[in-house]
Amino acid sequence: MVAKLDRIEWKNHNITNLEYIGFYEGLHKLSFGAAFSDQVQRAHRDFAPRWGYTVSANYSFNPSDRHFSNLVSTYAQVYLPGFARHHSVKVAVNYQTSIGGYKFPSGYAPLSYLSTRLIPRGFSSGDILSNNYLAASLDYQLPVWYPEGGIGAVLYFKRIRLNIGGDYARFRDYLPGPHASDGRMVPRRIWSVGGDIVFDVNVFRQPASATSTVKLSFYRPSSGGLWFTAAMGLPF
């Protein structure tokens, strides 16, 4: 990267010469990490492990430019059995923070790398900062119907399931004052609650192991209106 970071112009708490300093040419980023996962074997009608966990830790930095903050992130996820057969509970937590480079409260958050893992649903990476970012999520998922039918050899509806979930995140944000020296760090909290309707389907006589998903999500974030999205998951 050839960004001229020593020539940044800062006005009204924003970088005013973003294109000039060279961001449009891209960034170098080197990441490495370690992860471990363990879970019990699923029954035929299980869509998630009854017991299982995943833990991971990652570190990212720019090897060619010391001005960028390095990112440290950790993640853990646990699967637990629900209140009935084939129900699933998933609990996940994530912590990330930036070190080195432009530190707060200098206000250069755009120069910090960011992990997009476990951002409350209804928000995007542009809504958070990697400054002592702590997030958690809780999901309870259960089957509601097994249609066991479809449209000839074209589409087979295997199962319809419901997920009820909630997310919470907390991080430190920079609150600017009337003068540059008046800025201060303040805690910021965001959350969302809602649910997903998931359709497990097989297309064109694919085997049971090649099940695809169609997911419709409805969540209410702590800021803004109702958030809706549709997604499709492929079996590979």
Rank of each mutant, 00 (worst) to 15 (best):
T54V: 13
A109K: 02
R85P: 11
K90I: 15
G101A: 03
Y102I: 06
P105I: 04
Y113W: 05
A57D: 08
R85F: 15
L111S: 01
L114D: 10
T74N: 02
T54F: 15
H67P: 06
L111M: 02
S69W: 03
G52K: 08
G101H: 01
H67K: 01
T97R: 05
G52Q: 13
G107W: 00
R66F: 08
P110H: 01
S106W: 12
V78N: 08
F68T: 02
S88Y: 03
V91P: 09
A57N: 09
K90L: 15
H87E: 15
V78G: 07
P105G: 06
R66C: 03
Y79I: 09
R66W: 04
N62V: 02
V55S: 09
Y102P: 06
T97Q: 04
Y102L: 05
P110I: 00
T54L: 14
D65G: 01
S112Y: 02
V78Y: 13
A92M: 14
N70Q: 02
H87G: 10
P105Q: 02
F61M: 05
P110V: 01
L114C: 08
N62R: 10
P105N: 03
D65W: 05
V91M: 15
S60R: 03
H87P: 11
Y59K: 07
V55N: 07
S88K: 00
D65L: 04
S64R: 11
A76K: 03
H86V: 11
R85Q: 15
K90M: 15
F104Y: 12
Y75N: 15
P81Q: 14
A92E: 15
F83P: 07
H87F: 14
Q77L: 14
Y113F: 08
T116E: 12
R66A: 06
A84V: 13
G52M: 07
G107L: 00
F61V: 00
S56H: 08
F68R: 01
I99T: 06
G101W: 00
Q77V: 11
V91Y: 13
S73E: 06
V91L: 15
N62W: 05
F61N: 05
Y79Q: 07
V72S: 06
A92C: 12
K103W: 06
R66V: 09
A84M: 14
A76Q: 04
Q77K: 11
N94L: 00
Y79T: 07
T97L: 09
S98G: 13
H87R: 09
V93M: 08
R85C: 12
V72K: 07
V78F: 10
H87W: 15
S112I: 02
A57S: 13
Q77I: 14
T54E: 15
N58Q: 09
L80T: 12
Y79C: 09
V89S: 12
S112G: 11
S69R: 04
F83R: 13
V93Q: 03
V78R: 12
H67Y: 06
T54Q: 14
Y95N: 00
N70V: 01
V93Y: 05
L71W: 01
Y102A: 05
G107S: 00
T116H: 10
F68W: 07
L114E: 10
